[in-house]
Amino acid sequence: MSNKTFAEVLQDLRYGTLHDELTETLQEVVNACISTGKGGSLTLQIKLKPGKSGELELTDTIKSTVPELEKGASIMWATPEGNLQRQDPRQMTIDGLKSIGKEDYQQLKKV
């Protein structure tokens, strides 16, 4: 009698749903590592508990560390009323200057 491989057992656990979850989680970690340039991890823990009639109860735990992109900060100014705004209320305005939006900025980056 040949031994059943770990991969075969893995595909049997929870009727194959564990294998599906591991596949999805691995893809999530791989994609995040590629997009962030940072490392990640995937850990599978399988616990085996013997029963009284020769059976084994297997429980699994999946843990992953998915790297995240660094988030930028926003700079805002408080008004005397306690509101936040992007322009410094103490800064004087100069006529003729144009404020650019995100689309304008993206166009400038391409040049």
Rank of each mutant, 00 (worst) to 15 (best):
V29C: 04
L42F: 04
L48F: 08
L58T: 09
E68D: 10
S2N: 09
P89V: 07
S74C: 12
C33G: 05
K38Y: 04
A32R: 01
E21R: 14
K110P: 00
T36I: 03
M76A: 15
V9C: 08
I46A: 08
M1Y: 08
E68G: 11
E68F: 09
V9M: 11
Y15E: 15
C33N: 03
M92F: 13
E55N: 08
T79I: 08
Q91E: 15
R86E: 15
E81I: 05
E8W: 00
N31W: 00
T59H: 05
M76R: 15
T61Y: 08
G16H: 03
V30N: 04
G72V: 13
T61C: 07
D104C: 01
L48M: 08
K102E: 09
V66F: 10
T59E: 13
Y15V: 04
I75Y: 10
I100N: 03
I75W: 09
L10R: 02
I100P: 07
Q11G: 14
G54Y: 02
S41I: 01
D12I: 00
A7Y: 05
K98E: 13
V9D: 08
F6V: 10
P89N: 07
L42P: 06
G16A: 03
E81K: 15
I100D: 03
K38Q: 11
Q27D: 09
S53Q: 12
K63F: 08
Q27N: 10
T36Y: 03
K49Q: 11
R90S: 14
R14I: 06
L18N: 03
L58K: 10
T65Q: 13
T43E: 12
V66P: 10
S41D: 09
G101Y: 01
L10E: 01
G39R: 11
L13C: 02
L108P: 00
D20W: 00
M1Q: 07
V66D: 06
K110G: 06
L10C: 02
P67E: 08
A78H: 12
K110S: 07
K49G: 00
E8Q: 13
L56Q: 05
L48P: 00
T61M: 13
